[in-house]
Design a protein around this nucleic acid. Structure first.
Length: 215
DNA sequence: ACCCAGGGTCATA
DNA sequence: TATGACCATGGG
């Protein structure tokens, strides 16, 4: 078994199944993926709750809302002016594509390229959407992934996004459920012990986390 | 008072 | 290709 798979086994044993992505619908997951860019999830939840309270968690409501008003709902998630534009352009794109039902019939490669064409959707956001809203076997690379696995000595950490994604996807079985669980565990582990960059190694060595099983 | 969080875009070299 | 500035709130 590869080291990447062993880390997965260790994380799963340590934290248990994670039941991701937080969200009641594919659309809510997509909204969350945009709003969580470089932002704590607790702040994203507040913004999503604002949208729900305003009955505005829908493509139509977001496209129709005045920019200032949309931004005010998104305020707790930070970068609210930029995210209002990103969310709007994303929803307009959804409308142009004919909605989620049309997208679900598309090949993953094509869908990924189309997502990346949307202003404000980068590789991680696109892969979050592919994996958690469309259940496609795409491995998400985030800051926690870079930090944790570079400390395990399995990657350098500063490789280009695509390079790392292929590294993980080539090593592991192409299984959406596995990738879903794995990324969630990486985030949970990152929040748990790798918050402070400089102290992560110490934390990993003293809490019985995955690192001990990999070395 | 500082540091950082489940990134992405744009300008510059 | 690769850095750096910028976006902005809330919790530790």
């Amino acid at each position: 078994m590869s080291k990447f798979h062993r880390v997965y086994q260790s994380l799963l044993k340590h934290y248990g199944p994670q039941d991701w992505w937080p969200g009641d619908s594919p659309f809510e997951i997509m909204v969350g993926a945009v709003l969580t860019q470089n932002t704590a999830w607790t702040n994203v939840e507040k913004a999503i709750n604002n949208l729900k309270d305003a009955d505005a968690l829908s493509v139509e409501a977001i496209v129709d809302a005045h920019p200032k008003r949309l931004a005010s709902w998104l305020k707790p998630s930070g970068y609210f002016n930029i995210k209002a534009k990103r969310l709007r352009s994303f929803c307009q794109w959804l409308l142009e594509q004919g909605g989620e039902s049309q997208l679900s019939g598309r090949e993953t490669i094509e869908l990924r390229r189309d997502l990346l064409s949307v202003h404000g959707v980068g590789p991680e956001t696109a892969d979050d959407i592919l994996l958690y809203a469309f259940n496609r076997p795409v491995f998400v690379i985030d800051a926690y992934t870079r930090r944790i696995f570079s400390r395990y000595g399995l990657i350098k950490g500063d490789e280009p996004y695509e390079h790392l994604r292929e590294t993980f996807e080539n090593d592991l079985a192409s299984d959406a459920s596995l990738f879903n669980q794995y990324h969630a565990l990486i985030v949970v582990h990152g929040k748990d012990v790798c918050r402070k960059r400089a102290r992560c190694a110490d934390c990993c060595l003293t809490t019985g986390c995955a690192r001990n099983d990999v070395d």
